[in-house]
Amino acid sequence: MSEVKFISENKINIGTNSKILLRKFTKPSTLISLGLLFLIIFCALFASILAPTNPYDLKVVSILDSRLSPGDKMLNGTVAWLGTDGAGRDVLSAIIFGLRTSLVVAISSAVIALIAGLFVGLIAGFYGGKIDSFLMRIVDIQLSFPAILVALVLLALLGKGIDKVIIALAIVQWAIYARTVRAAAIVERNKEYIQAASCLGLSNSLVIWKHLLPNSISPLIVLATLQTAHSISIEATLSFLGVGVPITEPSLGSLISNGFDFILSGAYWITFFPGLMLLATVAAINIFGDQLRVVLNPRANK
């Protein structure tokens, strides 16, 4: 059976999008950031294998190794390429383990915030009217406080621990997702396919789940990447201030704060290298997210 041919109507290209996507991703800045990102995730995943020493194994850590400069040999013979901190922990190993903590906190808080924000945004966008106004005022209130302040207060209430930090970061961030999803959902909601679905008699929850959600989610992909970078830096700030993750499970932020006491006495490496890693991580994620936005934006496809 032959396909109906419509000569008079425009030809439609099929399968060219993936080609354009690929070409966009081969820009040097994207490649570098992508490479760095993979490296960082790889390090975080296999921290216990990759790290020269285990900085949390008290049997290995010796106070005699404290404040070795980068390149010195430690007592057990391994070279501390990035030096050691005040307690004699290898800074390189601490960074690799710290990355893991930072990424776990950032990604899990981003996922929780995204799901909560998605839910609120879809409801607000779909129903509109009073429900929308009510939810968006909550979002406004949430967004009118600085993120750090809200997180500080929350941590003061919740107490210490990684799970508490994740909860605090999720509460700080959900509103941004909610507002973005709502904007996308309102645009989609007014399209005729949503009306067609209602006309078929589908229940509201089904219309939201099957029709509205898949079409409103794309701006979130970019936002989630950028927000992950953001939450890494919030987490680092909190840890630096001493309210973040406990020192027994240090993240990049607590490593920076850990070396802060020694920075004036010349042991710059304890603070400097974790700081550099933080910068590299956030920058890599941001550049990647930016490129993602360019690629996913249909208007930029020229």
Partner: peptide, 24 residues
Amino acid sequence: QMIFQDPYSSLNPRMRVQDIIAEP
């Protein structure tokens, strides 16, 4: 049942034709 004006927005762009028709 209704047939809408704009054929470009009246079909869910993320669904395959068979799912669109089978939905009801």
